[in-house]
């Protein structure tokens, strides 16, 4: 970590944030009988896993179907980047017709990934309602009219900064760091 990088959420705050998001979901979804969680590939799936696990810790009867969705083929920047994006796996073992869908991603920035995700999701049916849950909401940088319904933390950033979410499952520690560009 460089001197001007800062920790936005350390592991204690991170844990509290996940718990709060889970409780907010319970307030709105009651028994989750008609609810499905979809994590956007690649990094939204870790958050989706955690939210599902947290809900199950709170009440064993909350066993919510979980899918992972890759949006690569739906992106609007294909052929506008030098290096094409590598797709990740889509695993949607269920139909989302008439379900309440909670779409999950780690960071909400321009909104373009979420836009692609909404399109990709519709290949699996017409949901009754879709909500968006994100861990980090980077305000003021949106390119599209997309807002999250559940937000772990709002941050104010400049475009060149980068928010990185680390997960204990893959990176050894739960934390969120904001990387700032070098001065030179």
């Amino acid at each position: 970590m460089k001197h001007n990088d800062r920790i936005i959420l350390d592991s204690t705050q991170f844990d509290l944030t996940i718990k709060r998001l889970a409780h907010q979901l319970i307030e709105n979804h009651n028994d989750f009988s008609n609810t499905i969680i979809i994590g956007l590939q690649p990094r939204g799936t870790y958050l989706a896993d955690r939210i599902k696990a947290e809900l199950k810790l709170i009440d064993k009867t909350y066993d919510i179907p979980l899918g992972t969705l890759d949006v690569t083929f739906y992106r609007d920047d294909y052929r506008r980047q030098n290096n094409p994006l590598v797709p990740s796996k889509t695993e949607m073992e269920f139909d989302i017709e008439d379900k309440n869908v909670i779409l999950v991603d780690d960071v909400l920035f321009t909104g373009r990934t979420i836009r692609s995700g909404l399109d990709a999701m519709l290949a699996f049916g017409r949901p009754k309602m879709v909500e968006l849950l994100v861990l980090i909401n980077r305000r003021y940088e949106r390119h599209l009219p997309i807002q999250a319904d559940y937000i772990g933390k709002n941050i104010h950033t400049i475009v060149s900064e980068r928010a990185k979410v680390s997960w204990s499952a893959t990176d050894g520690e739960d934390k969120v760091i904001l990387y700032t560009p070098d001065d030179e």
């Binding site: 890759d70 690569t72 083929f73 739906y74 294909y78 797709p87 796996k89 889509t90 949607m92 139909d95 399109d119 990709a120 519709l122 290949a123 699996f124 049916g125």
Partner: peptide
Amino acid sequence: DHFKEVINRPIKKVPS
């Protein structure tokens, strides 16, 4: 591999 999953979806089309 990814396209094989796509063509087995209810809607088998992507806008790429």
